[in-house]
Structures are given as C-alpha cells and as structure tokens.
Design a protein around this nucleic acid. Structure first.
Lengths: 402, 402
DNA sequence: CTATTTCGTCATGGCGGTTTACAAATTAGT
DNA sequence: ACTAATTTGTAAACCGCCATGACGAAATAG
C-alpha cells in the first residue's frame, strides 16, 4: 500500500500477510486521503460516492483523519444545487510535511512540501561537491535541512520524513550509496551522516525525477520511461505508476546500453556505451569544449547562436540516444519517453535526430518523446513528494506520531 | 488480486475500489488456496500459522472451500509429534481445470491441468500452420480443445477457463492477435473462432513461457528476463512476480533491439536488429542451411557433430544476443536471464559467447544466464497454469460457477 | 494411567461497513 | 410565503468477519 521506493515488499497474492479488519480500515483511510488530496475540497458525500463506501462509513473515517490533523474542515460549501450543502474537506495544510533534499555535483538543495503539494520552505546552496568526501557534503546538507525544518515548523508543519536524491546508484536498503562517480563516493551509508529521528529514504535523482514527472506532470501516463542526464545518463522505468527498481536497485542504467558495440571503451568495461556518445564529457569533446561549471547552459547558448560544431555534437548525441531508446522502447513498450534533467534544456537540438532515429527503427507509430516541464527541479520535488505520498498511502501510520 | 495477464487493472493505492469485508474474505480464501496449493497437504492449524489467521478463522474458510469443491480433506495425518494429529487438506484434484492451448508454426497442442498442477489430459497435432488463415487453424484447435475437455470431464474435472499461446503480438484485450508474422495473421479476434462459454485469455507464447518458468521452474527468481525464440526472438520481463505488458501489450520485443545499428535492414524498418543476427533465418543462412521442418534439431545435431560453420553461426548469434541482453540487463537489472523455447536446445553453443559478451560489458558481477528446464513445453504449460492461478487468486469467483 | 500437547470447533465479543431513519439546510414550485 | 423535494451528515440497529477463550478429541511423554 505504500509507495515503495526501495523497500522489499512482496506483492501479488503470494504475500503471506493476513487480511484483517485493521488493514481494511487503514486502506480506506488512505483512499479518503488520496481522493481528497487529488480532487480538491470535497464533501463527505462526494468522497463516499467516489470511493464506493457509504456516507456513514466515510464520516467515521473523516472524523479520525481530522482528529489526527491530516484533514481539515473548511466549512459549508457554496450551495449551487438543491439539497443541503456539504461541508468541504481538504487535506491539511498545517500537518505533516515531506522534506526533500538533493545532493548535486555543484549544489545542495532542500525543500519542505505540505500534504497539499505546496512547497512551504526551501534552501539552496551552491557548493562544488565534485570529489568531495561525504562528511563535509552531508554536513552542509544537514545544516540546510535544519534550516528548512525550522522554517516549516514555524508555519505549523512537522516533518514526516526525509528523502534524499543523489547522483549515483543506491542499494535496495535506500540508505547506502553504492557508487556516485561524480562525487567519488563508494559504499557510503548516508544515513549515518544525516539528522537522526526522521525516516530516511535515499534514491537516485533520476528515480525521484521520474516520480515527480508521474505525480506532478500534466498528462504523464502511468507507463513511461524517464531519461535524465547529469554527468552519466540515467533512466527510470515507471510501470503501472510504480518505479521499477531491479534486483539490486540498479535498474535504469541507460548510459551503459551498447549503441555501437565496437565503439570506444567505457569505464564500465564495455565498448560503445551510450555514454560514449551522449554523455556530457563526450558531447563536450565533440563540441570542442572544456569541462567546467554550467556546461549545459553554455552548450545551449552556443547551439542557440548556431555554432555548427556544437549542433553537430548534439545531433550525434540525439542519434545515439535514439538508438538506445529504440532498444528500450522495444523491450518495455512504454506509453511515452520523457526527457528530464539536463536533457530538457538541450532538447531542441537533441530531439530531431532522436525522434527520427526512433521513428525510422520502429514498425508502427513511434513512441512519443516529450520534454519534462519540471526541468532540473524534478528530483528535489520528487523526493519531497515521495514522503507526502507515503503519508497519503498510510495515514494511520503517521497519525500515531502526531 | 488476480494474476493479470492482460487485464487493465489499476494498481496501487489510487485504485478507487473500496475495501469491504467481502473483499477481505475473498483475499483470505485466496491465501488459503495458495498456501495449501504450494505447500502440499497441510492441516488447518498449519495453514493458520502460515497465513497469520487464527485456527477458527481458517476453519470457516476451509469449510467454504471444501463445500465449493476446491479443497479436499484427505483424512488424519500420520502422527509423528505430540498432540492430536491434524486433518490433511489438499487442493482438489477433481475440481476446476485450466485448459491451455498453443498455436505453433507447425503444431497445435492443448492440455488440461488440475489445481494441483498436474497435466490430466493432452492432445497434440502436427499441422503446418505457416501462412494458413485463422479459420482452419483455430477450427483444428477447437477440435483438440473439445477432445481434451471431454477427457478432463471424464476424470471429474470441469474447465474453468481457456488460455491460448500464440506466436505473435496480442493486444491488451487478450483476444486480438495484432500481428503473427509466421502465421500471417493480422488483427484477428481469436475469440470469435474458439469455443464460446469458456473465459478466454490469449497471450504471446513467450509470455506464457516466462510464466511457466516463474511458476514451475526450480529456483526461478521473481525478477527475471525470459528469452525465447521460435522464428522471431521474444522476451518476457517478469518484475516482482508479475509480467510486464507495456502500454499496448507489446513489451519484450527483444528481436528488434538494435545490435549493430548500421547492419542489415530489418522488416521492422530498423537496421541491425538482433533478429538479423540471432533470428532463425539469419542463423540458418550463416550456417549454410535451408529453412524447413525442425531446423532447430538439425542445427543442434550438426553442432554436436562439430560442424565448424554451424558452430560459427551459433557463436555469432550468441554474441549478438549477449550485446542485446547487455542493454536489457542494464535497463532492468533482473536477477537472472533465462533462455527458453528453441534457444534452450541450442544453449550449449550459444552460451559461451553470450556469457562472455555480457560479462565483458558489465562492470560488477554479470547477470547469471540459465537455461529453462521446461524447453518447448513452457508456453503450453504456462497457459494452462495461468488459468489455474486465476482460480487460486480468486476462488470465490469460481465457487459460484461450480 | 495421568499429564501434556496439539487439533478442530463452538460461543462470545470487538470492529468495520451497511442499512435505516431522521434532522438540517438548501432549491423548486405554487 | 409556504410546502414539497432533494441532499447532507449523523445516530442506532444490524450483519459479516476475525479474534479470544474454552472445550472435547486424539495423540505422545512419563
């Protein structure tokens, strides 16, 4: 019932968990929260008709949620139809908040999101984190977290959990960073260096970006492939509204899909991986540029000005992406492919070759490729919202913690 | 709660279905069936301790299942321990049966499997179906189905549903064959040409093969990639014990993953697809052989005898498979890759190059590649078992139909 | 032969949603 | 204006499902 980010959770009818009345109640509480959260202010009667329970049952559920501070009564609705007007219910704006944090290669960011999905506090700091050891980086992040939590508490919110997006692979325990090439971290238990007391979830930034797209995007389908790039190229697979983690939690390593199998050697041991053609380093080299700060902005700028070499480089990257995505699309048959992260800024010059390659190699109608509207905000928002979703998914669990 | 083969089923907490006591009861009935089915004869007390309900609750559940003919009381257990011996319960061997059917390129097959998973009736007919229109093929299949159903009924079973494996793409409605290249079928509603009255599910043979592997394989994990080949190369992705369908139901088209993007043109519109290197036609050509009957057996025979050209051909196919699977493994991070269908017979000559290619291109430990023990029986068994699973997943639904 | 352990069942109770009834608050109709 | 109709929210009685606790039945241990 939760939004499992990295938890081992048996699914399907094989799970040995018994079905008891308490579980039923918990699921129904969750349903009420989700419907009220998703469809704005709603009367008890409206909620009842949507989730299929009786008004009486919903009444008791709502009472419990109001007592827990998760739902608020806004007062009588403006009557437009016949009959007694209902009393509008809304998800609480002064209850639990999800704290999202992001460790970027040259910045740290933290924000607090309330149950209504609004960002209520945020803090960003530009810091060059490349090849810096975990202690100072996470120390800096902890300071930001404390600041944001204090700000949120000043508004009457209390932190329900912390979710951290990192640019690297995270183990299934959702705490250990197995490998973060750009930070130079290896097998780091992030939990030890962050504020204790808050339930912690760590995940790859691409995964949180995909979840943000799923939850906040305009017409995002429930089955899509989210591609993002910071330095490496990551992807997240969303199936039926859920993230696909893979056995070790490493699913989505699009960057090491072979594109031209006899191409240049890659650090992963392979040859001709996508990263060798569309990774930041490769693109910069092809564009005749040096690595450095805000390279993406620079690339976009030069492409805009019509720099032929840059455009050629991006065209080539798009082609390689198109070939790799053809494989992924054939394998997964997603409803769409979404370009997020740094890629969204370069989309105008990547998309033509990417799309044409994908279309040429596809029999029927090609899979639509869209660009994320969230841009670089995705991972941070996705992290914070993942905590919020956890509350909506099991309000009873949070109710006890006040 | 069902094993959805192709059904559109909202999952996660967003599903609007209410949680009522009847649903709770149904799920608990299912849990009892699954535990008894999976762990052999079991006493009520043993079931209770396994699923976490009380003996009293299990008693009433078992009563209901016995009355419905889904469970049988085998009599008192042989006492080995202290205390009153329990009364052994087993899944009924004379209740509902799953009817599985397979449309192959040169054969038709049907079988009936009881709730215990045993094949109780079967019929096979060798028929060249290539480029034959649906009517005669499905007419022949219908005859076989009637024969098998009659035989099963003679043993006291009654058919609970029909599942048909076809060598082609099937739409999400689980009835329409969108494209079956080897049969030459296009957009064919298979349901119109099969015995009415039985709940019907149609799916790709690779998918059913993967499910057979999941349900019947020795140590099959819950996350794996199942690769099979008849003429095309298909794959099925199993995530968390469930089949991944994709948006249109076309997931798993491994055969059209680009391997050498500038390679020979493929019917799909692409270039250098896996099928151009590891598809049956390509392998036969590389081996210097003509297409025809039982080409796989012939290939295996010659390879066994040491035919250098054949071995070279299979080595090359293994290499191409390895490259395509590297991409798939990077994207999905499965627990293992299983070779099934025709590939299992050729595995000895494919595996070396396949494994080495996969290992070379993988950073850490490579994903293990195993060979299915079910061989060509997989799709048929998977189809029949899928019906059985549906009964176990919701026994209450079937109880009413007797 | 008795004490102990385990199994299956029955009676009782708690919990959760439904049903039914009703007061409250609005609109529609005369 | 006043009544009828409609809709909302709640309270009381009811039913279904599982838990609890007690009991007889059937085995082993001493």
């Amino acid at each position: 019932m939760s939004t499992p980010l990295n938890r081992t959770r048996p699914a399907g009818p094989e799970r040995a968990l018994p079905d008891t009345q308490q579980g039923m109640r918990r699921r129904n509480l969750s349903r009420v929260m989700h419907t009220v959260g998703a469809e704005g202010p709603l009367s008890r009667a409206a909620v009842a008709s949507r989730i299929g329970l009786t008004r009486a049952a919903v009444s008791t559920l709502v009472d419990e949620l109001i007592r827990s501070g998760l739902l608020e009564e806004l007062g009588p609705e403006r009557p437009g139809r016949v009959g007694r007007p209902g009393s509008a219910l809304a998800v609480s704006g002064n209850g639990p908040a999800g704290i999202g944090a992001e460790v970027g290669v040259d910045h740290l960011a933290v924000c607090a999101v309330d149950l209504r999905g609004r960002v209520r506090a945020r803090a960003v700091r530009h810091v060059p984190n490349r090849d810096r050891s975990p202690e100072p980086v996470l120390g800096g992040l902890t300071a930001l977290i404390h600041r944001v939590v204090a700000e949120a508490e000043g508004e009457g919110l209390w932190p329900a959990g912390l979710a951290v997006a990192v640019p690297g692979l995270v183990a299934r325990d959702a705490r250990t960073v197995v490998r973060a090439p750009n930070l130079g971290w290896l097998d780091t238990d992030v939990g030890d260096l962050l504020p204790p007391g808050l339930p912690l979830t760590v995940a790859n930034e691409a995964n949180f970006g995909a979840l943000a797209e799923l939850w906040l995007g305009e017409d995002t389908p429930r089955d899509f492939l989210h591609v993002s790039a910071e330095i490496g190229i990551g992807a997240a697979v969303v199936v039926d509204g859920r993230l696909l983690h893979g056995n070790r939690g490493f699913a989505g390593e699009l960057g090491h899909v072979p594109v031209w199998p006899d191409g240049p050697a890659c650090a992963c041991g392979g040859r001709g991986c996508l990263e060798q053609y569309a990774g930041e380093e490769a693109v910069l080299r092809a564009a005749g540029m040096e690595p450095g700060e805000d390279r993406v902005g620079l690339l976009a700028g030069r492409a805009e000005q019509g720099d032929a070499q840059v455009r050629r480089a991006l065209h080539g990257a798009g082609t390689a992406l198109g070939i790799a995505l053809t494989g992924a699309v054939n394998l997964l048959d997603p409803q769409s492919v979404v370009l997020g992260g740094a890629l969204s800024g370069l989309a105008p010059w990547l998309l033509p070759s990417l799309r044409s390659e994908l279309a040429r190699r596809t029999a029927g109608p090609a899979c639509p490729v869209t660009v994320s509207a969230l841009g670089s905000e995705g991972p941070l928002l996705g992290a914070a919202h993942s905590v919020v979703r956890e509350v909506l998914d099991d309000p009873a669990a949070v109710a006890g913690r006040v």
